[in-house]
Simulated scan of single mutants.
Amino acid sequence: MLDLRTAPYGALALRVALGVLFLAHAGLKIFVFTPAGTVGFFGQLGLPAFVAYATIAAEVAGGAALILGVWARLVSLALVPVLLGTIVLVHGAKGFFFTAAGGGWEFPAFWALALVVQALLGDGAHALVRSPALPSRAVA
């Protein structure tokens, strides 16, 4: 059973937590690794420089949009490929557990799943710009 009184606040908490995680990871790429270092790392993965910049931009814009509640359902789905790319290109071969050397794929997989859950839950409480409503179906 879904408690309709508290569910919007659960979606809000998840939305803000996901947004903060994206901003933190963007900050890591900008302030710690630097954009040039991030481009270099992506280059070692065989990716062109624009993918590194696009990833940083997606993390900043997506994180801010999630925190503010701007089309959170759509933004959540749009960010899933960023994490799937992380799993496939960076963490997949290192094993499941994120405590493995270089980090395994458990955390990015959980994070991607949390984004899907956010998309299913909707925008939550205090969203600035609500996502378009999903079509409803009557259940007999």
Results as ranks from 00 to 15, higher is better:
residue 3 D to E: 08
residue 3 D to L: 07
residue 4 L to V: 13
residue 4 L to D: 11
residue 6 T to D: 11
residue 6 T to G: 13
residue 7 A to V: 10
residue 8 P to F: 11
residue 8 P to W: 14
residue 9 Y to H: 09
residue 10 G to F: 13
residue 12 L to W: 12
residue 14 L to F: 01
residue 14 L to D: 02
residue 15 R to F: 13
residue 15 R to A: 11
residue 16 V to N: 10
residue 17 A to W: 14
residue 18 L to P: 05
residue 21 L to M: 14
residue 21 L to E: 08
residue 23 L to Y: 13
residue 24 A to N: 10
residue 24 A to G: 14
residue 29 K to M: 04
residue 30 I to W: 04
residue 30 I to C: 00
residue 30 I to S: 01
residue 33 F to N: 04
residue 34 T to Y: 06
residue 35 P to N: 02
residue 36 A to V: 12
residue 37 G to T: 01
residue 38 T to W: 02
residue 39 V to L: 02
residue 39 V to F: 10
residue 41 F to V: 03
residue 43 G to N: 05
residue 44 Q to N: 09
residue 44 Q to T: 15
residue 45 L to Q: 05
residue 45 L to C: 04
residue 52 A to C: 07
residue 52 A to S: 00
residue 53 Y to Q: 00
residue 54 A to V: 07
residue 55 T to M: 05
residue 55 T to P: 13
residue 56 I to E: 00
residue 57 A to P: 05
residue 58 A to N: 09
residue 60 V to K: 07
residue 60 V to G: 03
residue 61 A to Q: 05
residue 62 G to K: 10
residue 63 G to N: 10
residue 64 A to N: 05
residue 64 A to D: 03
residue 67 I to Q: 08
residue 67 I to G: 09
residue 68 L to A: 13
residue 68 L to F: 10
residue 71 W to M: 15
residue 72 A to R: 00
residue 73 R to K: 10
residue 73 R to E: 06
residue 75 V to I: 14
residue 75 V to A: 11
residue 76 S to W: 06
residue 78 A to R: 13
residue 78 A to W: 06
residue 79 L to P: 04
residue 79 L to W: 06
residue 79 L to N: 04
residue 80 V to F: 06
residue 81 P to S: 03
residue 83 L to T: 11
residue 85 G to S: 03
residue 86 T to A: 15
residue 86 T to I: 11
residue 88 V to A: 15
residue 91 H to M: 01
residue 92 G to K: 04
residue 92 G to Q: 03
residue 97 F to L: 09
residue 98 F to W: 06
residue 98 F to R: 07
residue 98 F to T: 03
residue 100 A to M: 05
residue 101 A to N: 11
residue 101 A to F: 07
residue 101 A to Q: 10
residue 101 A to K: 14
residue 102 G to I: 05
residue 104 G to P: 06
residue 105 W to C: 03
residue 105 W to H: 07
residue 105 W to D: 02
residue 105 W to Y: 13
residue 107 F to D: 00
residue 107 F to C: 01
residue 109 A to N: 09
residue 109 A to M: 11
residue 110 F to E: 03
residue 111 W to T: 14
residue 112 A to K: 02
residue 114 A to H: 03
residue 114 A to E: 01
residue 116 V to L: 08
residue 117 V to L: 09
residue 119 A to H: 04
residue 120 L to C: 09
residue 120 L to A: 11
residue 120 L to Q: 05
residue 121 L to G: 11
residue 121 L to I: 00
residue 123 D to C: 02
residue 125 A to E: 00
residue 126 H to W: 15
residue 127 A to W: 12
residue 128 L to V: 12
residue 129 V to Y: 07
residue 130 R to I: 12
residue 130 R to K: 13
residue 131 S to H: 06
residue 131 S to G: 08
residue 132 P to A: 12
residue 133 A to D: 09
residue 134 L to F: 15
residue 134 L to I: 08
residue 135 P to C: 09
residue 136 S to I: 03
residue 137 R to A: 08
residue 137 R to T: 01
residue 138 A to D: 12
residue 139 V to K: 13
residue 139 V to H: 15
residue 139 V to L: 14
residue 139 V to I: 14
